[in-house]
Simulated assay, not measured.
Amino acid sequence: MTTGDGDWQRDLVRELTDVPQSGGGASHSADPGAQSEPRSEVRPEVRSKASASPQTRDPRTPAPAASSPAPAPESLPTIDPRLAIALGRPQHGDSTARRAGAGLRRLTASAGREVAEQTRYAEELQQPVTTGRVVAVTSIRGGVGKSTVSALLGRTLNHYRQDPVLTLEADAALGTLPVRMGAESVRWSAGDLARILTPAMQLTDVTGYLVPVADGGWLLPAGQGRVGAPLDVATYRAVTLALRRYFAVTVVDCETLPGEVARTAMDTAHARVVVAPMTAEGVHGTRQVLDWLASLPHSALASTVVALSAATPDATLDTKAAAAHLREPGVTVVALPYDRHLAQGGPIHTAKLARDTRDAAVRLAAEVMRRAVRVR
């Protein structure tokens, strides 16, 4: 994949692979396990204080108390071990009979048309970017699949792109993104990182505070799964603005609307995804959100995609009629079908997703990247 002017992605990849020679400064390890023990040398302000020339002190003045760095947060499991055993084995999104039938249909379908469509989506997903793109995902209420869609986007983008992808949680209401992304434990939060980030840090320094995702990419949780201080707008702005220089794409799992952080994220992102539940009231409420986006100082509809998510196999709402109603303001709608694997909860295993779900996730990610790259 070619890169844009400045070739910033190649510079970041070089940070991950190049190790400075002895005597040339501190070395930076690309070991993902470093997130549990971040190094103190990544804080330049500490080095500058230590290397400064000693000042003359009046002996009558009491010596200042030695300052100690703030203790590192404790690493906590994303799921209580006593509850994790209740998840059982992950189900496949398609039944055995459906998988067999899909295989037969693929044999009789037009292979050339399918390959052409996959190639087109891959080209959209692999578009080079000259600055980091931010994609905000939100919904009108919780429990409609917002974190699931964020996780699907993060995994899909990481699969197709060669450069670093970050999935960031900006939902303080005990969000489920770390669980959906397969993180076994979390330690550093967005608020912790906001106090640590400095312009001198390299990508390998930053990833020491992130959670490496099993299928690739990185995760930054909003908290440790405990009730605490909510993520505020200032912290969100500080983290996203600082991390854009390290990651080609950042997928933000926002709080629900009309939360202040969600409104800020939707107003400042390069592309937006509104997750709509496939219910009459869910579609109606999402349409109101679309009307609000159209009223922003700079209309956000052109860079918005609606993910119409089915949470039950027994939904009676007509999908085509619901999608047509949401398209009226001028947005693209991608339907995410019911999937047994996603409905089971717990970590998302890409290989267990139904084929229709994988195809919908790829199309959704391609539509999002097309809009994110178009914004300058």
Rank of each mutant, 00 (worst) to 15 (best):
S27C: 10
P164F: 06
L87T: 05
T256L: 00
T332S: 11
G145S: 05
A136E: 04
Q162R: 14
Q202S: 12
L16P: 03
S75W: 15
G208F: 01
L241M: 14
Y246I: 10
S40D: 11
G182W: 03
E281P: 15
P337F: 01
L125A: 01
D5P: 14
R133C: 05
E117F: 09
H341Y: 08
A63N: 08
A34Q: 07
K49M: 15
E117D: 12
S110M: 11
L177D: 05
S303K: 12
D80H: 14
T264G: 12
C254Q: 03
R263A: 11
T240Q: 11
R120G: 14
V331Q: 00
A86V: 09
H349Y: 10
L168P: 14
Y236V: 09
D318T: 08
V283Q: 04
M278Q: 11
A323Y: 02
T279R: 01
D171E: 08
M278N: 10
V13W: 11
S139T: 03
D253P: 07
G175S: 06
T96R: 12
A136V: 04
P297D: 04
L210T: 01
D192S: 13
L353P: 15
R14Q: 08
R370K: 06
G175K: 03
P212M: 04
G223F: 05
L197C: 01
P164V: 09
D314K: 11
R141C: 04
G182N: 03
R376Q: 11
P297L: 07
P221A: 04
H298V: 15
S51I: 15
Y246T: 13
Y121H: 15
R374E: 10
A170Y: 01
H284T: 13
T312H: 10
A311D: 10
L220C: 07
T319D: 09
A265K: 05
S303M: 10
R14M: 00
L317T: 02
R374G: 08
T176Q: 07
V373P: 07
V211S: 13
P44T: 09
S303I: 11
L12E: 03
A276C: 09
D318P: 07
E15R: 03
H349L: 07
R370D: 12
R287A: 12
A323F: 02
H159E: 06
V46L: 13
V373D: 01
L83C: 12
V373R: 08
S22C: 13
R120Q: 11
R358D: 07
L12K: 09
A280T: 12
A194P: 04
R272H: 10
Q91K: 14
T264V: 09
A214L: 05
D291L: 15
L76V: 15
R133M: 02
S51W: 10
V375K: 08
V375W: 11
Q344S: 06
A307F: 00
A248Y: 02
P277E: 00
A170W: 03
T131W: 07
A280W: 09
L257V: 01
V249C: 02
V334K: 08
G132Q: 03
N158E: 03
L166I: 08
R98Q: 12
K352F: 14
L241H: 13
T56L: 15
P59M: 08
E184V: 15
G93V: 02
A343P: 15
A315Q: 09
T138S: 06
